[in-house]
Write a protein that binds this DNA or RNA. Structure first.
Lengths: 347, 347
DNA sequence: TTTAGCACTCTATCCCTCCGAGTGCTAAAC
DNA sequence: GTTTAGCACTCGGAGGGATAGAGTGCTAAA
């Protein structure tokens, strides 16, 4: 049931050729482009066998073969050779990342942009996810009477802020007391455990806060919603438009299906999360074609990996491309970007 | 040289029909769909005349007519009837906007999303532009030793923040002194006049700041770059993927050209600005087809308008759609959104 | 000025043929 | 047993009329 050596080589060669040309590969073309020491007839036999085993498909009788999902899977699992990035390319990526400043959002944006540029496919970078985050700081900054900027800092380095309205007559002093009390009471608490009740308790247990309940609650509510809002995953996606240049999406309806799905950040983020949970300990995760449960991505493949903040598993970055993707190259690129992120976020 | 009444009606009818169907309009179809009290032959004469005058085009001899850019222009300038939004639609938009919270970025995001949803085209919302902004506040918030969040507040209500690194040993006290000094020195100053020199002067003129020059300059530099970065226009664009459903973009290469250009926020923002300067006093601005100087938008039209912050001209919102756009409807929608924005940003 | 009538034009569509790439099978060769 | 040469077969795509139909412009009459 295993594949003998030549069959492996044949499968590998077919994937390589198809990736390069997007055209079904025939036995003749295979001989021409690779140094098989056998005739085309032999390859034909092998190819027929590979098709019977499910690794190849034939668009129609008189065409060459293309890899099936199973074929790509085999290729990815045991045939391709992932090598290191060229120094040059590494340097270019490094440069792009070094331009971003010192905050996770900015870093991720730069990472996403670098990935999209380098791979030529769609890149993805997501902020650390809720479950691994706890609150470290809560600051409330009065911008003008009645307007306060709530700054929420999470453990993974995520900083979010939100402008809120409060009654005009509250002073910066009072606001500061409240935010200090809440911060003290909640810092270190996982986001999932924070509720309006815990927020209120934190503030009211603190002796220093002296405000009528109704007024206090109003401020606390704003603080609470600001915290809750901070757990929204941000998704940085770039390079979508490049997919239109690929022959597999020359039919606009396909492209539309893809873009429709991709325009829902949340859907994609959720899926990436799901994948990360399924095989999270791996260095990188791959989903191919029909393996992807998102609509409109049947002709795509998904490569993601997980970056760390302060040594702990945090968020994901990834690439979406056609099934006919340069897997080895993309993997080395994505890995490099992840390493760079890890390093910058070690702290 | 003007158009007689019937010719106007004919042109209007052709635009309406072509907008609805995206198919060349013939004399017969025109008679069928509209109550012209003349025969098709008469219309044919009119259409031939309109073509001679440049308002119509014929894809080929045996096809109907489609409006030329000039035809659309005439339609937009004097033929179409812009009426008010239905109460229902107004309510829906209002609802969408009311969900956003109290900050310009959030409002613009909501406005952009509402416009895209309601029009079915591409929406655009840009933050107020630099030239009309001055600094109102500068806050520096120590997140942890060595890490400071710089919050910049501009006159038009724009709030930006940026995380920077400073030497570990500086205290919140010291940082506060510096930011207060800078804020006092610069508040009210147009962004364009702020330079590293003015920042440094502001800090050093202030007696309270006592730090070695080198150290101080380091912090000031971070403050300065944070301020400078705040003048970047943010562009919120939504609904791009909807264009793929339109017949005019069923050819992927066209869609690609469009998307390539649109993926450069800056290009689009610059163009909108240019248009706003050309005819800024108008209630809304329209550019049709070839009038648009951006590459890849030959088949598109652009409708923009300017919203106010505190009663003063600020930024722009707009819609990009096919030339074959429902101009009247889009204009009423965009106007409504602008009014809503103006109201919310009156302050 | 409008209209009916008509010849004309041009595209889109269908159908047919043909070409060639690629196949699978068979029988011989190694 | 594996490999190879040879060959008949399949099928999609390109190319080439022929046809239908929508739409036109023109002419001559109303």
């Amino acid at each position: 049931m295993g594949l003998d050596n030549r069959k492996k080589e044949v499968l590998q060669a077919i994937v390589d050729d198809y990736v390069a040309t997007c055209e079904p590969v025939g036995s003749k073309a295979l001989i021409d482009r690779h140094d098989f020491m056998v005739s085309s007839a032999t390859l034909r036999n092998d190819m027929a066998e590979l098709e019977r085993m499910g690794y190849l498909e034939q668009p129609h009788t008189s065409a060459g073969r293309i890899p099936s999902d199973k074929g790509y899977r085999e290729y990815v699992n045991s045939l391709m050779k992932v090598d290191h990035l060229s120094d040059e390319e590494g340097k270019e990526i490094k440069e792009k990342l070094s331009k971003s400043f010192d905050e996770i959002a900015s870093l991720l944006r730069a990472a996403s942009s670098a990935l999209a540029d380098k791979t030529g496919y769609i890149s993805l970078a997501m902020t650390p996810k809720l479950t691994s985050s706890y609150l470290t700081q809560l600051k409330m900054l009065m911008i003008e009477p009645g307007k306060v900027l709530v700054v929420v800092v999470l453990s993974a380095g995520v900083v979010k802020n939100r402008m809120v309205r409060i009654p005009d007559f509250l002073t910066q002093e009072q606001i500061l007391q409240i935010s200090n009390a809440v911060e003290q009471g909640l810092s270190g608490m996982p986001l999932s455990e924070i509720s309006m009740i815990t927020v209120a308790t934190a503030a009211k247990d603190n002796k220093k806060v002296e405000l009528p309940d109704a007024l206090l609650n109003q401020v606390l509510y704003e603080a609470y919603t600001a915290i809750k809002q901070a757990d929204n995953l941000d998704v940085y996606m770039e390079g979508k438009h490049r997919m239109l240049a690929l022959p597999e999406f020359s039919d606009t309806r396909r492209a539309q299906g893809l873009f429709d799905t991709l325009s829902h950040d949340g859907l994609v983020a959720g899926y990436v999360d799901e994948v990360a949970q399924q095989d999270g300990q791996k260095e990188y995760m791959i989903r191919i074609g029909q393996e992807i449960t998102l609509e409109g991505l049947d002709d795509c493949s998904f490569i993601t990996t997980t970056y760390n903040v302060g040594g702990k598993v945090a968020g994901n970055i990834g690439v979406i491309g056609p099934k006919r993707m340069e897997y080895a190259k993309v993997i080395s690129q994505i890995n490099f970007v992840r390493m760079m992120l890890d390093e910058k976020l070690k702290q």
